[in-house]
Computed example of a mutant assay.
Amino acid sequence: MSRPAIPAEIRRAVLVEAGHRCAIPRCGQTELDVHHIIPWETCQKHEYFNLIALCPICHRRAHNGEIDRKSLQQYKENLSREFNKNDSGIFEAEIVEIRRRITESNEEIPSYTFQFDFPDFQKAVERIISRNIEAWGYELLTEFREMQDNYIDYPRDESDPELGGPPPKSTLVGTYDVLRRDQKIISVRYNIDRYYTGAAHGGRTTRVQNFIARPFRPVTIESLIGSGNSLSDFATFIRQSLAQERRYDPEWLARGTAPRFENFSIFNIEKYGILFTFSEYQIDCFAAGEQHLRLSFHELKTVCDENVINELASYDL
Rank of each mutant, 00 (worst) to 15 (best):
M1D: 02
S2Q: 15
R3K: 15
I10F: 02
A13S: 13
R21K: 14
C22S: 11
A23L: 13
P25F: 09
Q29G: 09
I37T: 06
E41M: 01
T42Y: 02
Q44N: 09
Y48T: 14
F49K: 05
C55V: 11
R60C: 11
R61H: 12
N64D: 04
N64Y: 10
I67R: 02
D68G: 06
D68T: 03
K70R: 06
N78Q: 07
L79P: 12
N86L: 10
E97V: 04
I98W: 07
E104T: 05
E108M: 00
Q115P: 01
P119K: 03
F121R: 05
Q122E: 14
A124D: 15
V125C: 06
V125A: 03
E126I: 05
E126M: 03
I128G: 09
I128F: 08
R131L: 04
I133M: 08
E134F: 10
G137R: 03
G137K: 02
E139C: 03
M147K: 12
N150A: 01
D153G: 07
P155R: 00
E158L: 01
S159I: 04
S159E: 12
P167L: 02
K169V: 01
K169M: 01
T175W: 03
D182C: 11
K184A: 07
I185R: 05
S187T: 14
G198L: 08
A199M: 11
A200C: 08
A200W: 08
T205F: 06
Q209P: 11
N210K: 08
I221F: 04
S223L: 06
G228V: 10
N229V: 05
S232F: 11
A235C: 07
Q244S: 14
D249K: 07
A254R: 14
R255T: 15
N263I: 07
S279G: 09
C285L: 14
G289I: 08
H292E: 12
L293R: 01
F297S: 01
C304L: 10
N307P: 07
S314N: 08
L317E: 09
